[in-house]
Amino acid sequence: MKPVWALSKLVIKEIFRKKDFYVALILIGVILFYAAQLQFYNVKNIVRYLMEIGLWLVFSFSVILTVTLAARQFPSEIQNRTAAVLLSKPIRRGRFVIGKFLGSFLAGASAFLIFYVLFLAVASAKGGGLASGTAVQTAYLFLLNLMVVAAMASGFSYYLTVSANVSVTLILYLLMGAYGQTLKGRAWAALYYCLPHFEFFDLRQRFIHEWGPISAGLVFFLTCYAAVYTAIFLLLGALKLQRHSL
């Protein structure tokens, strides 16, 4: 496991040493602080619009950062010729795939948690108490969401170029997240049953409108669901890499 963890740390260092994360953080901060200081007819403690904006920003930037990071891991190793040096060391190709995925996911998760804490601080300051149970559950399910997205981008990175991978992954993510429930017609049955339903992990509306958390059983099911899809995408990537001649 040490080689896997070493690879993961490398990817995490990458996200915090490049400017993408800081640009996202500054943008989120600026927009949140601007939105928080808006007044509407001198009515105090209006917070749900801020939560809607903040959660959308946090979720979107986290997904974009994670997908772009995961998508470029293997192609940049090939392009920069570091793949040969790395894979000439005693690390199995399967562990290489896992290490790259884990690093991308943990890097994206770290970025998300930092954004989320900033959002919670601003929203709490604006509107008082937020439902802590739902806040935690929203974050947890989004992390599962991020795990699947990272696995998808990671797995595709062994087949596609960076730009193709980012486009395909984000399109599928948006398609399933926004229209996943409606793809039930015959022509779309394959997508409906085969692709991961990202809308399962989106608790923003429950959090914003104080609907309360979902059941523990459902959380457990969604955890297993995310784990299965993660494994599928990583397996796809590993199968391709096993046959890849460097």
Binding site: A6, R17, K18, L86, K89
Partner: peptide, 19 residues
């Protein structure tokens, strides 16, 4: 060519951890 965002110390540490 190595990871441009790393230092030599970090690079050797990374490869050492792989071993």
């Amino acid at each position: 060519t190595y990871y441009r965002f790393l230092t030599p110390l970090e690079t050797l540490k990374f490869y050492g951890e792989i071993f």
